[in-house]
Simulated scan of single mutants.
Amino acid sequence: MSRSQDPHPSRSIFPFGNPFRMKSHKGSHLSPQLLGVLQGFETTLAERLRKLMPKSKDEILSLSWMTFAMKSLCESHNDIRTLITDLELPVSNWDDKWVDVYFDISTKLLDICNAFSSELSRLNQGNLPLKCALHHLGPASSKSFLRACSLLDDWRRHINAKNPRIEKCSTILDGLVGSLDLPKVKNSAKGKVLMQAMYGIKVETVFVCSVFSAAFSGSSKKLLDLDVADVYAWAPAFKSLQNLVNEEIRVRFSSGKFSVLNELEAVDAVVKELYPTIQGGVNTEDKVEPELHLKTVEELGAAAEKLSQGMDLLAKGVDGFFQAVLTSRDTLLSSLRFDKNVNDRVVGRNMDQQVVY
Rank of each mutant, 00 (worst) to 15 (best):
S2I: 02
S4E: 12
Q5H: 08
H8A: 03
H8E: 04
P9S: 08
S10F: 09
S10E: 15
R11K: 14
P15R: 02
F20L: 05
S28V: 04
H29N: 11
V37A: 01
G40I: 01
F41A: 13
L49Y: 01
K57T: 13
I60P: 01
I60Y: 04
L63F: 03
L63V: 02
S64V: 09
W65Q: 15
W65N: 06
M66G: 01
M70W: 15
S72E: 08
L73Q: 11
E75A: 08
N78W: 04
I80Q: 01
I80C: 00
T85K: 13
T85P: 05
T85L: 12
D86V: 15
L89E: 13
P90I: 00
V91K: 05
S92N: 15
D95W: 06
D95N: 15
D96L: 06
K97A: 06
D100T: 12
S106T: 10
L109M: 14
A115K: 05
S118G: 11
S118C: 15
S118N: 10
L120I: 04
S121I: 03
R122Q: 15
N124M: 10
Q125V: 03
G126C: 02
K131A: 02
A133F: 04
A133Q: 07
H135P: 00
H136I: 00
K143D: 15
R147M: 10
L151N: 11
L152R: 07
W155Q: 02
R156L: 14
H158V: 01
H158R: 13
H158T: 01
N160G: 08
R165V: 08
I166G: 12
C169W: 00
G175Y: 08
L176T: 08
L176F: 11
V177G: 10
D181C: 10
D181Q: 12
G191D: 02
V193A: 00
M195P: 01
A197E: 09
M198D: 09
Y199A: 07
I201M: 01
K202P: 02
V203D: 05
F212L: 10
S217W: 07
S219E: 12
L223M: 11
L224W: 01
D230Q: 14
W234K: 05
K239R: 13
S240C: 10
S240G: 14
Q242E: 09
L244C: 14
E248F: 08
I249E: 04
R252Q: 11
S255F: 00
V260D: 10
L264R: 03
L264W: 01
V267Y: 06
A269S: 06
V270D: 00
V270I: 15
V271M: 13
T277W: 00
G280R: 07
V282G: 02
V288K: 13
E291F: 11
L292P: 00
L292C: 03
L294T: 15
T296M: 11
G301H: 11
G301R: 08
A303S: 13
A304H: 06
L307S: 05
S308G: 04
G310H: 07
D312G: 03
L314D: 11
L314Q: 04
R329H: 09
R329T: 10
D330G: 07
D330M: 06
D330E: 04
L336C: 12
V342W: 05
V342R: 13
V342S: 07
N343G: 00
D344H: 07
R349A: 14
N350H: 03
D352W: 12
